[in-house]
Amino acid sequence: MSHDPLIIVLIAMIGGAIRVSTPFMFVALGECLTEKSGRINLGLEGTLVLGAMLAYATAYQTGSPWLGILAGGAAGVFLGSLHGYLCKLPKVNDIAVGIAMMSFGIGLAFFFGKPYIQPQAPRLPAIPLGGWTGVPQLAEALQINPLFLVGIAAAIVMAWAFANTKWGLIIRTTGDSAAAARAMGVSVDWVRYLATTIGGFLAGVGGSFLSLSYPGSWNEGLSSGQGLMAVALVIFARWSPIRCVMAALLFGAAGALGPSLQSVGITQGYYLFNAAPYILTLLILIASSGSQQAFRAAPGELSITK
């Protein structure tokens, strides 16, 4: 069974979805929250990298990867609240601040991360859920990291809260019409500040997954643009937390396609297969671009839709 090339590729894609998707998921959820409140934070790539660095450093210094996750989140809170504060100032453009925060986060991470490239920090333990299958490849693919489950839970909670709670309503109102929110007596700036800060926290936690779980080390080339892709995934997922998770899973699975096809002997055209995630994204975007739903889902206050 486990020698059929198709099965091998499928197992690799399931494994890839589980292994690679988590950082995309966290950054996309964080961005989803921020954008729902009517602001765009393009700086999450910087948050991801700084979160990864700080998580690794903390895990190394304290010996606890769990404290590392918190430190990664704290890095996100710092950058997110800075973004939120700066955008409260008059005539400040959130996209420009986001790009500045991206460079700032990456720069800080590289500067303070130097001494942590060499040492080895303890990694997050994984939960082996595939032992029952008896197939080593499948057992390996089902090594599930707790953060993956936390990410899915967070998406469900977010989706529920947006639809069913007062806070959800306040965030959505702020995102759709600042004037309506003000009429409700809500401080628009404050809501957006909080949404950006919590969004930053989530992205920072996503970064800690990169350095503490998979690939599980700190170096300066760690992220290779995953934070930026995740921001794009939010638009692709039409601002729905559940669809953010699905988009992240799809992206992870497509990313595993290139290496696993080579491993079963399909060795031609791997540059094309390596581009599979992006090609897939484009195809789905084109397929869904005709629907009016895409525009209806976009928060009305976003500077890209205004």
Binding site: P215, G221, P259
Partner: peptide
């Protein structure tokens, strides 16, 4: 490309 190296 750390993530793809790990996948490979």
């Amino acid at each position: 490309l750390p993530v793809r190296e790990a996948e490979a």
